[in-house]
């Protein structure tokens, strides 16, 4: 029940944002058109321009290269750290062994 409430409240927030942003976008577009027509767009430059949502296949393909580089990079760094930790552990163990032999 609690989980359901949490999910419902989040959905509520998201829906509120969605519906209100659609209105906001429409209002922004209308305003920017008017501003363009009146050629008084100095203040509009201070705000972020509304983003045009589009499917950009070329950018997607370009980013696949970054994905590959990123995953290779992260695995290489990780494997180096794993190797170093394994050496440290081995060194620590051999030190402990020497100590116990002395005792």
């Amino acid at each position: 029940m609690k989980k359901l409430l949490v999910v419902l409240s989040l959905i509520l927030v998201l829906t509120a944002i969605l519906s209100l942003t659609v209105f906001a976008q429409a209002e922004n577009t209308q305003n920017s058109n008017e501003e363009y027509e009146n050629n008084v767009n100095n203040d509009a430059n201070d705000e972020m321009p509304p983003m045009k949502i589009r499917i950009d296949g070329k950018a997607f393909l370009n980013s696949l290269g970054l994905m590959g580089k990123g995953m290779v990079g992260i695995f290489v760094v990780t494997l180096v750290i794993v190797g170093v930790v394994a050496i440290l552990n081995w060194h620590g163990q051999s030190l402990d062994d020497r100590k116990s032999k002395k005792q």
Binding site: A59, S63, G70, L79
Partner: peptide, 23 residues
């Protein structure tokens, strides 16, 4: 640590998805 590295796949996947949506 290998699992920690693999679990970052979402970051790079989302980078591509966000690019696809025109960001």
């Amino acid at each position: 640590m290998i699992f920690g590295a693999a679990a970052q796949f979402g970051i790079f996947f989302t980078l591509s998805m966000a690019s696809l949506f025109g960001f």
